[in-house]
């Protein structure tokens, strides 16, 4: 479902003496449907970078990043957008929404984007928000004013609204209490059970152990020092 081959990534800082900062080399990785791979490695080793490369948010310098048959490294913007709409979900650490849009609509939006009828989309959104213990009186408000933990849960609800065949999870359980953490892990297990291929970053070792089938140490993708 997700297959990376010899992916490298570097940043060229044109405005700082054209410094070239290599951050990843020869990254190869494959995740099958129903499988959850956990990325591990020290902070700054490039876990989030790898995830962003897979999502198309960062441009891979070389190699191929094939998700659901589309090579994200070479695809047209509209192909990547279609992939993100239908196939590839991403729960980031930060919620980024348009101001003024109600929480319920924020969560329902990915479903509407794939053509789900409004009623059905809102029902699904409501049930996710309820599962994640967002009080119903907040559903009509924009999440921009919510606390960090609430925003994180809204973000998760949104990420799980549509049944994406592939999911990227960046610290989904961070800053959650035990009850909500258990709910989120339940959602992840549910996604695996329906056959989603998942790549996750979990700092919480217990969570990691519960949902991940195997681990990928991204330190192995670090550019070798030119020694």
């Amino acid at each position: 479902m997700i297959e990376l081959k010899n992916v490298s990534k570097s940043f060229t800082l044109h405005n700082q003496g054209s410094a070239v900062i290599p951050v990843m080399e020869n990254a190869s990785l494959s995740v099958e449907p129903g499988e959850c791979a956990g990325l591990i490695g020290a902070s700054g080793a490039g876990k989030s970078t790898l995830m962003r490369v897979i999502y198309g948010n960062y441009l891979a310098a070389s190699g191929s990043v094939v998700v659901g048959g589309v090579d994200v490294a070479k695809a047209q913007p509209r192909e990547i957008l279609a992939l993100r709409r239908e196939t590839l979900g991403y729960v980031s650490q930060f919620l980024r929404v348009v101001p003024r849009v109600a929480t319920l609509d924020v969560v329902a939006e990915p479903l509407l984007a794939v053509g789900t009828p409004v009623e059905q989309a809102r029902d699904k959104a409501a049930s996710l928000l309820a599962q994640l213990n967002i009080p119903e009186r907040l559903w009509g408000l924009s999440p921009t004013t919510f606390s960090g933990g609430e925003q994180q849960r809204v973000n998760i609800a949104r990420g799980f609204a549509h049944d994406y065949p592939a999911l990227l999870l960046d610290e989904p359980t961070a800053s959650l209490d035990a009850k909500n953490r258990a709910t989120v892990l339940g959602l992840i297990e549910g996604a695996k059970a329906r056959g989603a291929a998942i790549i996750g970053i979990f700092h919480d070792e217990a969570a990691r152990a519960q949902v991940c089938d195997r681990f990928v140490d991204v330190s192995g993708f670090s550019p070798k020092a030119a020694a």
Binding site: T12, N15, N57, Y58, P77, I80
Partner: peptide, 21 residues
């Protein structure tokens, strides 16, 4: 030229980097 979030988060050209920063 590219996907909006990619151009903004990982700008490739010197001018875009300047613009974003």
């Amino acid at each position: 030229n590219g996907l909006t979030d990619q151009v903004l988060d990982d700008p490739q050209h010197a001018y875009t980097q300047l613009l974003v920063s």
